[in-house]
Design a protein around this nucleic acid. Structure first.
Length: 432
RNA sequence: UCCUCGGUAGCUCAAUGGUAGAGCAUGCGGCUGUUAACCGCAGGGUUGUAGGUUCAAGUCCUACCCGAGGAGCCA
């Protein structure tokens, strides 16, 4: 095959004759002139076919192109203000590599359900393409951040025998005759990893069989879970703060125009994501809610309306810490100053995006954890290895879990997590 | 699981209980600088399923199915 040029580097070929391979994004054909907008995944380029300049057969071919047909188009690259992107191609040759008939996604509006049924094709459209790029950038930034802080990425298993935070939300499967679950958190494994490498994080898919039907839930989502040896609650909060400032900053740096023009994000809201994040104790958050005339009883977890009400006060993510121990996971450390409280924290995004991080300091005492496992009716045998971490050199440690899709939803300004993952898995969606 | 709203052409949506409609898409025709191009013509329907009320049901009633939004739960 002859060498071809990718559209994202077409500005290097100004004045040259190049060959593009891609798909027909739009066609505007007239009697003697046709505009083909070519999409090759790296960008869009308008190809101009003048009847006077090409063979009759080439012009006929151009006029009859259909949306998403695969084509190879050759021509001279010129700068033109009228072309989207500022560059266009004066076509000298055109070949149809594969004709597409009746592409289902038209340039006009569609419903989400229809688009999700055609998710494999929807990914080709501008906004979805932008979200794929943003997701890639965010994932890279996350890895760069942790490596810059001296973390080692340690993979957690996906099959597990453990019910980390209760069994109701677990996907159960069969593992050579025994029940196994798809992981709902790599957290316990990261505690083991922290003793091995000091600062560990995992980054992988997580599964929850919650029958949630909201814009904030997926049954399969990607979670980032750092765990740091000899860290306490304050350290986890600072880490989360540095993390978000870094990752949001990288996204804005890499995609300012895309965020503004294609995703229609108000970038100034992202630029406000700077340290320090406001921090308030759970107790104070309850007081704030009550002062705002919103009845909320101490001891409950915040619902969506509560989070929104709290977030109204801030222009950046904020941290609520020291939740009642009763509403947090069994492994949370107690507050040494108030046994009712856990050394836990949530990071909530402003603008109604809600919780994106949950974490805290882990309990270090063997007997306390044994009691907790019993009180939560968890099968102790499955946690023996976890208890070993307290038997053989227990140590203070803290960390958190962050939902990748919720973070991207916030950064992109999207209203729903489902578009931030290429192929979302939801309660009523397993395909494509 | 609960609450609310919805399901009509390929898609997005109209239609006082009284002949099933539009825009886009598709096909054909017109147009030399289009920008989700524009103009003209044409084809396209078991109104989610099953019952019921009525002279007459897309419209009213019952059940079910499917979807969207929210609650709970969470990241």
């Amino acid at each position: 095959m002859a060498q071809h040029t990718w559209i994202h580097e077409i500005d290097r070929h100004l004045g040259d004759e190049v060959t593009l391979r891609g798909w027909v994004f739009h066609l505007r054909a007239m009697k003697k002139l046709a505009f083909i907008v070519v999409r090759d995944g790296t960008g869009l380029c308008q190809a101009v076919v003048s009847k006077a300049d090409v063979d009759e057969a080439i012009f006929e071919l151009a006029s009859g192109l259909t949306q998403e047909s695969t084509i190879e188009v050759t021509g001279k690259v010129e700068a033109d203000k009228r072309a989207p992107g500022g560059f266009e191609m004066q076509v000298t040759n055109l070949a149809v590599l594969s004709e597409a008939r009746d592409y289902p996604i038209s340039p006009k509006e569609h419903g989400t359900s229809f688009l999700m049924d055609h998710r494999h094709l929807w990914l080709r459209s501008k906004k979805q393409h932008a979200l794929l790029q943003l997701r890639d950038t965010v994932k890279t930034a996350i890895n760069d951040f942790f490596h810059g802080e001296g973390f080692t990425q340690v993979d957690a298993p996906i099959f597990t025998p453990n019910a980390c935070e209760g069994t109701t939300n677990l996907f159960e499967t069969e593992y050579f005759g025994s029940p196994a679950y798809l992981t709902q958190s790599g957290q316990l494994y990261m505690e083991a990893a922290a003793a091995a490498v000091g600062k560990a994080y995992c980054f992988g898919p997580t599964f929850r069989a919650e029958k949630s039907k909201t814009r904030r839930h997926l049954t399969e989502f990607w979670m980032i879970e750092p765990e740091v040896a000899f860290a306490h609650l304050d350290d986890a909060m600072s880490l989360a703060e540095r993390f978000l400032v870094y990752v949001v900053g990288r996204a804005v740096e890499a995609h300012r125009d895309m965020l503004q023009d294609i995703l229609e994000r108000d970038v100034s809201k992202l630029e406000a994501v700077q340290a320090p994040f406001p921090r308030l104790q759970y107790d104070d958050a309850v007081t704030v809610l009550n002062e705002k005339g919103h009845p909320f009883e101490w001891g409950g977890d915040f619902g969506s309306p509560d989070e929104t009400l709290l977030a109204e006060q801030y222009d950046r993510p904020f941290i609520v810490h020291r939740f009642p121990a009763a509403i947090k996971a069994f492994y949370m450390e107690r507050d040494p100053n108030d046994a009712r409280l856990s050394m836990s924290m949530d990071v909530l995004a402003p603008e109604g995006y809600g919780e994106i991080i949950g974490g805290g300091e882990r309990a270090t005492d063997l007997e306390y954890l044994e009691r907790q496992i019993a009180e939560h009716n968890l099968p102790k045998a499955a946690f023996e290895w976890y208890l070993d971490l307290r038997r053989y050199g227990t140590f203070p440690h803290a960390g958190f879990g962050l939902g990748l899709e919720r973070l991207i939803t916030y950064i992109s300004g999207n209203h729903h997590v489902r578009e931030t993952i290429p192929f979302p898995r939801q309660i009523h969606r397993l395909s494509p």
